[in-house]
Design a protein around this nucleic acid. Structure first.
Lengths: 247, 247
DNA sequence: AGTGGTAAAGTGGTCAGACCATACTACCAG
DNA sequence: CTGGTAGTATGGTCTGACCACTTTACCACT
């Protein structure tokens, strides 16, 4: 970086640089996020790391983050790092959120929307997934199987399983979109939380569905993956309707 | 962060607001501007002056200006000071809109998302549509056919056609969701407006697609409607890719 | 094994002072 | 009045330091 003065040659043909360092940094970060290399919820490297990796000062990195934060793309926490925010959230969530309160019909609709979106995700994941993504999906699947054997339920793992499939579509916009949907789902689930607890035989069914989805993605068989996911979510919708009518 | 399982206690005792110095500075400047003490075109005091007057470091002042600049309220010129901008003519861009300009790949992804969502819409519309909805869809279709015969293009009619189909799913959440998506689409189209103007033979093709979609919905044939819509949007995606690679 | 406390490391927030790059201003020579 | 020039003001960047908060690991206690 040290570029002394070099007065003699520098007078002519100066490179007209109207782009500030901080903006270059911001653009580079934006690119990484846009390409989905870093996605919603991920932690950015620390300011010091970024400064070193890009060969700029920490002040410039901070100004870049300031820009991105003002645009709602990242968010920083004192002592806790910076994370990537969901770029579709405010567009999608706030208009819909008001419909969800105390309205079971809307929750059902939301679940139906989720169903066909995830079916598409499974198909595209089977088409576009990388090996490392497949490994992660498999990891979550096996985790769920272990939990089931231990008689335990961890909603987060199921969440990660589905999220990783969404990521495997390698469609950045979709990843952010489905994250918003999940935000709505979890919001509604918080309201109707009884739904989370299913019977043990249902869990077994769900597990077999997950396994089938995974197989389809592993074998790069879009139709099989989609069909399995559809079967899975129709089951969920069905259970939801049943629970909904009982009450 | 960390939404653990705070269960019942959630919502109590939170809200420990700690405002950063840079935000305080930004707010103070914003106030001065909103009160009209500094107005459009006026020069702000220099960063060094502001820092001294407010008793903070120049770095904090710079970060504050960075925030205001990202919001379009002020603009800084290297060596030439900072001025107040006209905030009314500066449209506020959401995070996702920032990605959609400058990034053709993301626009393509968005179009792909739209494609499968509308395919679902067509299927559900064929299943759930009311007669009056069908009439409206038909109305828009015939309007487009008349426009085509007259050598005219009106994007709004096409928009209404698709929107009415979304409404015919009778899924409130989906309607709002697709409405958000359309908002984004139309924004990106506004940027890449060359795409709007298609060749006349393409228009004819699209018209036949629309007709096929309508037939499927009229006959309450979900598969036919979905297939027709998929054919239609794959065509659009294809044209987009072609246009995108040409440039 | 679980709980709670504590120390250390990691990370963002702020500050100070320096230097560079560009724009502005006043002055001067023609 | 014009064009150049030097000096000054101002934004842009860098360095290094310190503070405040969070996270983590470890340990003592139950």
């Amino acid at each position: 970086m040290s570029q002394k003065k070099t007065e003699s040659l520098d007078g002519l043909f100066r490179t007209i640089r109207l782009e500030r360092v901080s903006e270059k940094v911001a653009n580079q970060l934006r690119e990484v996020i846009s390409q989905g290399i870093l996605t919603v919820g991920d932690r950015l490297p620390s300011e010091r790391d970024l400064a070193e990796q890009m060969g700029v000062s920490r002040a410039s990195v901070r100004e870049a983050l300031q820009i991105l934060a003002a645009q709602g793309i990242v968010e920083s926490f004192h002592g806790g790092g910076s994370i990537v925010r969901n770029i579709t959230d405010e567009e999608i969530r706030s208009p819909i959120q008001i419909f969800l309160e105390n309205d079971r019909q809307r929750v059902l609709e939301l679940t139906e929307v989720r169903a066909f979106m995830e079916a598409w995700a499974a198909r595209e994941a089977a088409r576009n997934r990388t090996d490392s993504q497949l490994e992660r999906i498999q990891g979550y699947l096996e985790e769920m199987e272990r939990d089931f054997a231990a008689g335990e339920i961890r909603f987060e793992v199921d969440f990660k399983f589905h999220t990783e499939i969404a990521a495997a579509t390698r469609n950045t916009i979709f990843v952010h979109l489905i994250d918003s949907i999940y935000g709505l789902i979890s919001y509604s689930v918080k309201i109707h939380r009884e739904l989370v607890f299913a019977a043990r035989e249902d869990q077994e069914t769900i597990l077999s569905h997950h396994r089938a989805v995974f197989d389809g993605i592993r074998d790069r068989d879009p139709s099989a993956a989609e069909a399995a996911m559809t079967r899975h979510l129709l089951f969920v919708v069905d259970r939801f309707k049943k629970w909904s009518s009982e009450e």
